[in-house]
């Protein structure tokens, strides 16, 4: 019994029943195109295909406790390439949603990112690409923040040189009030959502 995974189909059943689009993962043929195309794959403990494989095997803890399901940014790269048309994003968000409902607290940095992201969108109606990472980095304290900033310095400089990141702070969008109304409503509707 040492180091052997006991296959348990009940978790897959649970996912099929409770997670948005969860039953679509039955169609996965393990090609790995989702994992290969995910821009955040380096930050994921299990890229989407592996999440699906874990569900198949019944590894509940690993899946619901995974930070990957919290990291998905809905870029759709995987979803458009999936040869079996699995709505990978819906599944990932669905899993995140379900994990929270089941009391799985997102890992600190993921939560920090989500929280800051939400706050900033609420405040500006957009993301300030300098401000957001700064706030996330320093959420763990000053020393960690400085270390993280130094780690990302090269990228930051390159982004600025390529004019992908502005030096000046971002402004609020037009019609921020309308957006906030929408966000308020979304929050009410999706209470318990991934970024609540």
């Amino acid at each position: 019994m040492e180091n052997k995974v006991n296959y348990d189909p009940s978790f897959a059943e649970e996912v099929f029943r409770n997670v948005d689009a969860g039953d679509e993962i039955k169609m996965c043929m393990n090609c790995g195109v989702c994992a290969g195309s995910c821009p955040l794959r380096e930050h994921m403990d299990y890229p989407p295909r592996q999440i699906f494989a874990l569900i198949r095997a019944g590894k509940r803890e690993e899946v619901l406790g995974s930070q990957s399901i919290m990291l998905c940014t809905s870029c759709y790269t995987c979803a458009v390439k999936c040869p079996r048309s699995i709505p990978v994003i819906d599944v990932m968000h669905g899993l995140a949603h379900y994990a929270l409902k089941q009391g799985y607290v997102p890992r600190k940095d993921t939560a920090a990112f989500g929280g800051e992201f939400w706050k900033q969108v609420y405040r500006l109606g957009r993301i300030d690409e300098k401000d957001l990472p700064r706030r996330v980095f320093f959420s763990g304290g000053l020393i960690e923040g400085v270390r993280a900033m130094l780690n990302f310095m090269d990228i930051g400089i390159k982004l600025m040189l390529h004019r992908r990141m502005k030096l000046l702070p971002e402004r609020k969008i037009k019609g921020i009030q309308s957006l906030r109304k929408m966000l308020d409503k979304a929050e009410r509707l999706g209470k318990g959502g991934a970024i609540a």
């Binding site: 052997k4 995974v5 095997a57």
Partner: peptide, 15 residues
């Protein structure tokens, strides 16, 4: 049945 699950990357047991 015990098997090597190639795509899980682990040894598995199905009871």
């Amino acid at each position: 049945v015990e098997a090597d699950d190639e795509l899980l990357g682990e040894k598995i047991k199905i009871e």
